[in-house]
Design a protein around this nucleic acid. Structure first.
Lengths: 229, 229
DNA sequence: CGGCTTTTGTGCAAACATTCACAAGGGCGT
DNA sequence: ACGCCCTTGTGAATGTTTGCACAAAAGCCG
């Protein structure tokens, strides 16, 4: 186990749970800005983001005091502050490994480009797809990984390969200098210290839903609770 | 003391954090079973799942005492118990709304069928794709939603539409009787009480990575983490 | 049969996260 | 300028999750 625990309240003591919600707030803020709203209260923004308003205020308070009491938050200003905190004011070149169905979907996903993520290259080891053009980019062979990472200064890699080759792709990404990895393959990746891995597993989400669905189906009554003895 | 001797039941009271990890354990167990391993210790399984062994034991203890002290856990037995707890011993028909790039990727994703999730129907409102065959299924028009849900007793819906039509699709799913929804559209869905929504947002995961990447770049202070959502 | 080894299951405390409730403060009308 | 209304920001309380550390089993061997 890698118990590093560096994240103690240091210079950047923003809780992980807060970080995970900032992108949601950001999206709600973009929607508000687009609809012409100039200021928003914590209550309104909380509803738009689907969270409790106290939680939202506490989350935002970690970034600083950007609200005005009695009024609310300036939408544009908050968009900027949240973006800056998340590091979205800079450009993030990304490589996608594996252009199967999922890789193609990712390449065409508009949500990347709109947040400063730019696809630097699409890589695959199958000669059959190398050379095909997807989302305006020619697929390159995986052998080009090191060159692409160095040339574009890529620090984020997306793994959309089959499970079997995910660890190998991961190792090569890390060796080439990538320190943040988004993994769609259904395996637990081993990485050295200093490398961040986040994982998205479609089937796990469904399994969690199935658990709750089963619970709902099996208890026809509300909250069987504490029938003592 | 809150747990009375409800032996095999225990369906209520399992922490959410534990539920979210059970599918990971299950996948590791399948891999072990396939490699011919008959029994496994909490330490070995924890390594395979990428978690702390004490956490794994506590998680499993919520399902019951299925281990043998001094030996470990019987792999096949544990597979069965975890599967049963998650509700995977039954068949879960699923409908997918929206067969764009993502919907197609989902339809072809092998991880669904292998866990008891069966795609009952693919729906889309675009006449251009209705009728095309994807993963062996003919795409039907969204108007068939209510009929499909009723006929196949669907309780899980997957929304892979553009953001604009996600809420509408959601409302129709709920009205048709679906009580569990996996949402890929980048919006916060509003649902009535009793309906479960889980969301997978590709761009949010990247934004969280960007935050950590920025922190690494600015402080040189590494931190490892493997987070599932 | 008794002692030794191994590994589970869990009490406990610390860390982390959420929610409540309200004082502190800003703007606006008069 | 003053007081009222509104909303932020936050202390404190509550709830949840993690990880340590160890006693309680279970197998094994002599």
């Amino acid at each position: 186990m890698t118990h590093r625990g560096v994240s103690a309240n240091g210079s950047h003591g923003i809780p992980e749970a807060t970080i995970a919600r900032l992108p949601v707030y950001l999206r709600a803020l973009y929607a508000l800005a687009e609809s012409g709203t100039a200021t928003v209260s914590s209550e309104e923004l909380a509803v738009a983001a689907g969270v409790n308003s106290a939680k939202l205020r506490k989350d935002l308070s970690h970034l600083g005091s950007y609200g005005t009491r009695g009024v609310g938050y300036d939408v544009d200003y908050l968009v900027y502050q949240v973006s800056r905190e998340l590091g979205l004011t800079q450009d993030w070149p990304v490589v996608i490994i594996g252009v199967g169905n999922l890789g193609r979907a990712l390449a065409n996903y508009g949500g990347f480009a709109s947040r400063g993520f730019r696809i630097a290259a699409l890589l695959d080891s199958d000669p059959g797809v190398v050379g095909t053009v997807i989302a305006g980019l020619a697929v390159q062979h995986s052998d080009a990984m090191e060159a692409v990472v160095r040339k574009h200064r890529v620090s984020i890699g997306v793994i959309a390969t089959p499970a079997g080759s995910a660890q190998c792709s991961c190792d090569r990404l890390v060796a080439a200098g990538v320190t943040s990895i988004l993994n769609f393959a259904p395996v637990v990746l081993g990485v050295p210290d200093g490398v961040d891995v986040r994982k998205v597993d479609l089937s796990i989400e469904l399994q969690i839903l199935a658990f709750h669905a089963q619970r709902k189906a099996s208890t026809g009554r509300p909250e069987v609770q504490a029938v003592s003895s």
